[in-house]
């Protein structure tokens, strides 16, 4: 079996035994739950649109908090040396850690499945956008994990990794909201860069290859950058 699986298993169980992970999950659930259910009964609409419209911004803070320790901690403890002298390659390490972070994001999302279930009890819920929204959320979580991993590969300080990761993810979320500063000709280009724009497309229930491709490319760039950063250290 490839070392990727074992690295994934180790990283994932490291998440599950650490108190930080449960704090992050709780914060995530409290924020999304609060913002989702506060206006929910006022609007009187059986949908999860509110939840999904807020998700990218919440992810921009929460996912870098998940990924910040992945490589930074290894650098500062020195276990990076022990890890890399085992028979593994850079890409094994990167992929294993990336999958663990994405898996943990999925675990974090899992309890929110109670929202659509609650809503469907209360009214007639259209499951299409909900399904799209969760697929989009996973893609978004994966892309942000890759960015967070890149940030973590650049420094041995977890706080710095968190801030850098958040800054990048946050800009990707907001970039399509600030388009009124820009000339007309650049509009569609910058709109395409926005993570929120692509996520909202998917969350409407439309699975377009352009949107999926966007998340895959962001993820790839993040992982490739992390790979380069690791090689640079040797």
């Amino acid at each position: 079996m490839s070392p990727v699986i074992h690295i994934f298993k180790r990283e994932f169980s490291a998440y599950m035994v650490s108190p930080v992970a449960y704090i992050v999950i709780s914060v995530f659930l409290i924020i999304t739950g609060w913002f989702f259910f506060t206006p929910f009964f006022l609007q009187n609409q059986a949908g999860l649109r509110n939840f999904f419209s807020l998700l990218p911004l919440v992810f921009a803070f929460v996912v870098p908090a998940i990924t910040m320790r992945l490589l930074s901690e290894e650098f500062s403890v020195g276990s990076y040396e022990t890890l890399l002298t085992l028979p593994v390659t850079f890409s094994d390490v990167i992929l294993g850690k990336f999958l663990a972070a994405t898996g943990f994001t999925a675990v974090m999302l899992a309890p929110t499945l109670l929202y659509p279930i609650t809503v469907s009890v209360l009214g007639a819920l259209d499951w299409g956008p909900v399904l799209g929204g969760y697929i989009g959320a996973l893609l978004l979580g994966a892309a942000f994990s890759a960015i967070g991993l890149l940030a973590s590969s650049l420094t041995r300080n977890q706080i710095v990794a968190f801030i850098v990761g958040t800054a990048v993810c946050f800009s990707l979320c907001l970039i399509d909201k600030m388009l009124f500063f820009l000339p007309q000709s650049l509009l569609s280009f910058f709109e395409y860069l926005g993570a929120d724009f692509h996520f909202q497309n998917i969350a409407k229930g439309i699975l377009d290859t352009r949107d999926i491709l966007y998340f895959i490319s962001v993820g790839f760039i993040g992982l490739y950058g992390a790979n380069l950063a690791m090689q640079e250290k040797c």
């Binding site: 070392p3 298993k9 180790r10 490291a14 035994v17 403890v77 276990s79």
Partner: peptide, 19 residues
């Protein structure tokens, strides 16, 4: 320099897996 948050047995098990 080893993973501080792992139990000795788990760690050796992990190394055995990778090896």
């Amino acid at each position: 320099p080893l993973y501080h948050d792992m139990i000795v047995y788990d760690y050796l098990n992990y190394v055995a897996d990778i090896r």
